[in-house]
Measured scan of single mutants.
Amino acid sequence: AGSTTLRAVGKLQVRLATKTEPKKLEKYLQKLSALPMTADILAETGIRKTVKRLRKHQHVGDFARDLAARWKKLVLVD
């Protein structure tokens, strides 16, 4: 499952970095939220930084902030 999640995170990371349409960004964040994330995947992909960049986004900022905070707890636990 780890390598599958890693690939999925990579694809979503590229999309988050290149797309600007709020509905698409929200969809990608929801998909990321549903993935079985680990501290290793967060470290290897840097996805948390990508998501943190969206914290001030008018439409998806709250979602991005919550997701980044949830992942921060995951990193602190591991």
Rank of each mutant, 00 (worst) to 15 (best):
I41H: 02
S33M: 07
K11L: 13
R65T: 12
G46V: 01
A43L: 10
K24R: 08
K49Y: 12
V77I: 06
T50F: 11
Y28D: 11
D78R: 08
K49F: 13
K72W: 00
L74Y: 04
V60S: 02
Y28T: 13
A68Q: 01
V75N: 04
A1D: 12
K52Q: 13
L54R: 03
T5M: 11
T5I: 14
V51S: 00
R15F: 15
L25N: 00
F63L: 12
Q58T: 11
R55P: 01
Q30S: 05
A17F: 04
S33G: 08
T38H: 02
T20H: 08
D66R: 06
L12C: 04
A34H: 07
K31T: 11
R55Q: 14
R55N: 04
I47A: 02
V14W: 07
L54D: 05
A1T: 13
I47V: 08
L74Q: 02
D66Q: 09
K52G: 08
H57Q: 03
A34L: 07
H57P: 02
A39M: 11
L35T: 02
L25E: 03
L16P: 00
L25C: 03
H57G: 01
D78N: 05
L42I: 12
T5C: 10
K19Y: 15
V60T: 02
K24Q: 13
A17K: 09
D78H: 05
A43C: 09
V75R: 06
V75Y: 11
T45I: 01
Q13G: 08
A64C: 10
V14K: 08
I41R: 02
L76Y: 09
R53W: 12
K23F: 10
L74C: 05
K23M: 13
Y28I: 13
R53S: 14
L25R: 00
A8E: 15
M37H: 03
K72I: 00
T5L: 12
R70N: 03
V51M: 00
L42A: 01
T50H: 04
V75F: 13
T20K: 04
T45E: 02
E26Y: 02
R70T: 07
R55D: 09
A68C: 13
E44D: 07
G61P: 00
D66T: 08
K23T: 13
K27P: 03
T50E: 08
K27V: 11
L74V: 06
T50A: 08
H57V: 11
Y28Q: 03
R15Q: 15
A39T: 07
K19G: 15
E44Q: 09
S3P: 15
V51E: 03
V14I: 10
P22S: 07
K73G: 09
D62M: 02
T45Y: 02
H59R: 09
Q30W: 04
A43P: 02
R15V: 14
A69T: 10
A68N: 05
R53K: 13
D78W: 07
R15W: 14
P36E: 10
T45C: 01
K24L: 14
A69C: 06
A34W: 05
T4L: 10
M37N: 10
W71Y: 00
R7K: 12
R48W: 14
W71D: 00
K73I: 05
L25Q: 03
L35R: 00
K27Y: 13
M37F: 00
L54I: 02
L25H: 00
Q58N: 11
A43V: 11
A68S: 08
K72R: 07
Q58I: 14
Q30A: 06
K49L: 13
T38R: 03
R55S: 15
D66K: 08
S33H: 00
A68P: 02
T20P: 11
A64Q: 01
F63A: 04
L16Q: 04
Q13I: 04
R7H: 13
V75W: 11
K72S: 10
L12W: 06
L32H: 05
K19A: 15
T50P: 03
A34V: 08
D78A: 08
A69K: 08
T45V: 00
K52L: 14
T18Y: 10
V75A: 09
L6C: 06
Q58D: 11
T4A: 10
G2D: 15
T18M: 12
A39K: 06
Q13S: 05
L74P: 01
T18W: 13
F63W: 07
I47F: 02
V51P: 02
P22V: 07
A64S: 01
R55M: 15
K24C: 14
L67Y: 03
G46P: 03
D62C: 05
L12R: 01
V75S: 10
D66C: 08
R65K: 09
T38L: 01
T18Q: 12
Q13D: 02
R7C: 08
L12G: 02
D78M: 05
K11T: 12
V51N: 00
A8R: 05
E21C: 13
K27H: 12
M37R: 03
H57N: 11
E26M: 13
K72V: 01
R55W: 13
S33I: 01
L6H: 07
D78C: 12
D62W: 04
K52T: 08
F63C: 05
L6D: 04
L74M: 09
A1C: 09
L25S: 02
K31L: 13
K49W: 10
M37P: 03
Q30V: 04
A8V: 13
R55V: 15
E21G: 08
T18F: 08
E21I: 04
K72H: 01
P36F: 03
K11F: 08
K31Q: 14
T20D: 13
D40G: 11
M37V: 10
L74N: 07
D40S: 10
K49Q: 14
R48T: 12
R48C: 14
P22W: 13
R48D: 15
H57C: 09
E21W: 00
R55E: 15
L16C: 05
V77M: 09
L16K: 01
K31N: 10
T4C: 10
G2W: 08
K49P: 04
D62Q: 10
V75D: 09
W71Q: 02
R70A: 07
Q13P: 02
K56Q: 14
L6W: 06
K27F: 12
K31R: 09
A34D: 13
R53F: 07
V75P: 08
V9I: 04
L32W: 02
R65W: 06
V60D: 00
L32E: 00
V9F: 00
L35D: 02
R7M: 14
R53Q: 14
A8F: 13
S33Y: 09
K31G: 06
E44W: 11
K73N: 11
D40E: 13
L6A: 07
Q13L: 09
E21N: 13
Q30E: 09
V51Y: 00
Q30G: 04
A8Q: 11
K73V: 06
I41F: 00
L54Q: 02
A39G: 06
A34C: 12
H57F: 09
G10C: 15
L54N: 05
H57S: 08
A1W: 05
L42H: 01
L76W: 09
Y28N: 08
A64D: 01
E21Q: 11
K24V: 10
K31F: 06
K31I: 14
A17P: 01
H59W: 14
T5Q: 07
R53P: 01
H57W: 05
V77T: 12
T45G: 03
V75I: 12
K19M: 15
T18A: 11
K31H: 08
A34E: 14
L35F: 05
S33P: 03
W71I: 10
L42C: 05
L42Q: 01
L54C: 07
T18S: 11
V51W: 03
G2P: 11
L29V: 06
A8W: 14
R65M: 08
A68H: 03
L35E: 02
T20A: 10
E44F: 05
L76R: 10
S33R: 06
T18C: 05
L54W: 03
V14Q: 13
M37D: 08
L42G: 02
K24F: 08
Q30H: 09
T5Y: 07
V14D: 15
I41W: 01
H59V: 13
G10L: 15
V77D: 13
L54Y: 06
Q30M: 08
G2F: 10
R65E: 08
L54T: 02
K73Y: 05
K72M: 06
A17E: 15
Y28R: 02
